[in-house]
């Protein structure tokens, strides 16, 4: 069973990586398999983890109020019937309102107040920490001013705003660097999986290469790839 699993995972990884050469049927096959299996998996999961325990079993126990949620859920499907599609706005309104309420409180307590508090720092004492704190305060103030659109950013405001852009660029650079690191980690992870059995990878790599070669030649001869 483990061997079969290894062959399947290696084959699918190589099919996906074959996209680096060019778009081809092997890549499409792996992509469609992924989409189909994911959809099936999440439908089964929704039934197993959400609908059955929270609706079917609860209603069976006599918790009828859960039927209200079920009705709202069914109303979402009215989008497919143009005449009564307006009914789908009710469950949407419920979801939007609920998440807005939850997120407003969460954002205010987690991001706004505590993050503001953490920028109120000592910029005088404590040696190098104070220097770091000064940079933090300047970066925060100038970046905020960059997003102040009620006055044309010319003169002194323009200079401050330009300094803000520098801080934002440094932040974007750091984010990009971390993103590259993350993508490289994924590549390393897949490479490591491919190296579990070099023989399996070698055979499948050869098979993929032969397929791409034959397919490429056939495409050229029929002029499809032009």
């Amino acid at each position: 069973m483990d061997a079969l699993q290894l062959w399947i995972s290696t084959a699918l990884t190589l099919c996906i990586l074959s996209f680096l050469w060019k778009d081809n049927p092997l890549y499409k096959l792996a992509e469609h398999l992924f989409v189909g299996i994911s959809a099936g998996y999440y439908i089964a999961l929704a039934w197993q983890e959400t609908i059955r325990p929270n609706l079917v079993e609860e209603v069976a126990r006599g918790n009828w109020i859960r039927l209200g949620a079920a009705i709202l859920g069914v109303l979402m499907f009215t989008r497919f019937v143009p005449k009564i599609s307006w009914l789908s706005r009710w469950p949407l309104a419920f979801v939007v309102g609920m998440y807005a309420g939850i997120n407003v409180i969460a954002f205010a307590s987690g991001d706004l107040i505590l993050q503001l508090q953490s920028t109120m720092v000592d910029v005088v004492h404590d040696g190098w920490t104070a220097v770091s704190n000064v940079i933090l305060v300047i970066g925060l103030a100038t970046s905020l001013i960059y997003f102040y659109f009620s006055k044309e950013q010319k003169g002194a405001l323009g200079v401050v705003s330009r300094i803000g852009i520098f801080f934002l660029m440094i932040s974007f650079g750091a984010s990009f660097g971390y993103t590259v690191m993350s993508r490289m980690s994924l590549a390393i992870g897949r490479t490591r999986e491919l190296m579990v059995s070099p023989a399996t990878t070698g055979i499948l790599l050869l098979a993929v290469a032969v397929f791409l070669f034959v397919w490429g030649r056939r495409q050229r001869s029929t002029g499809e790839g032009a």
Binding site: G110, L114, T179, M181, R183, S185
Partner: peptide, 19 residues
Amino acid sequence: VQNVQSITGVPMVAACTAV
């Protein structure tokens, strides 16, 4: 952090992806 730590104050550590 938003829904739990900042509201309850429970000590929290985390590991995340680089991105």
